[in-house]
Computed example of a mutant assay.
Amino acid sequence: MGVAIRVADGDDRELVVRLLDEAFQDDPVSGWVFPDPAHRLATHHKLMAAFADVVLAEGRVDLAEDGSACALWLDVPAVDHGGADGEAQDEDGPAQLRAAVDPENERVELIGRLTAEVHPSGRAHAYLWMIAVSPERQGEGLGGALLEPVLDRCDREGLAAYLEASNARSRALYERLGFVVTGGPLDLPDGPRMWPMWREPRTAQQLTG
């Protein structure tokens, strides 16, 4: 399907946060981070805002022109984690996120640490941090349509892509787009399963064959 897409900027922050909040309210991982429904309703948007701010500042947010969907991307270089400064920054990030979003909730910090541990670091890649589709528009193919332009760029440039699928439905979508589970699933303590997924760039022969 054809979807008009533009790159979001700071003026779109409120829309992006609302999309993320609404799309992930019932997600298994969000339910694990915020197990109490009332607390999740009151606090979840703060976590989504923190994510949106990082990507608006350091990455790229692709936004459907009609405001129905968005995708958050970061370009991740090949990193050698042997540097002490980099390690300190990685260690501080989840703790800072918890302090800003929900200081009494250790799971806000834990989800950041666990996903960081499984994130590949040896090769440069495009990282799909999150993709959100308005609940009333889910099932229309918007997610795949929103991702295709970036994946096409990855194929042209020989760039891999990576994500963590947070539910079985999204995993199935990503598999159709060429992602495969890498390194095994991530089982959250007393919680749901996530699937780290990697996509090798497709060659011209693969695309035409």
Rank of each mutant, 00 (worst) to 15 (best):
A50T: 07
F51T: 06
F51I: 09
A52D: 03
D53V: 02
D53S: 09
V54F: 07
V54S: 11
V54A: 11
V55C: 11
V55G: 08
V55E: 09
L56N: 05
L56P: 06
L56S: 06
A57S: 15
A57N: 12
A57K: 14
A57Y: 05
E58Y: 07
V61G: 08
D62V: 01
D62G: 04
L63E: 07
L63F: 05
A64E: 14
A64K: 07
A64G: 01
E65M: 05
D66G: 08
D66V: 03
S68Q: 12
S68M: 05
S68A: 15
A69I: 12
A69S: 15
C70F: 04
C70Q: 08
L72H: 03
L72N: 04
W73A: 00
W73R: 04
W73V: 02
D75Q: 12
D75H: 13
D75P: 05
V76N: 13
V76A: 13
P77Y: 03
P77W: 03
V79P: 01
D80N: 11
H81S: 10
G82I: 01
G83Q: 07
G83I: 01
A84M: 05
D85K: 14
D85G: 03
G86W: 06
G86V: 03
A88Q: 14
Q89N: 00
D90V: 02
G93I: 10
A95D: 12
A95L: 10
Q96N: 09
Q96A: 14
L97F: 01
L97I: 09
L97S: 06
R98D: 00
A99W: 09
A100Y: 03
A100L: 11
A100M: 06
A100W: 04
V101F: 05
V101G: 04
D102V: 08
D102G: 02
D102Y: 09
P103V: 06
P103Y: 10
N105P: 06
V108W: 08
E109K: 12
E109Y: 00
E109R: 11
E109M: 02
L110W: 07
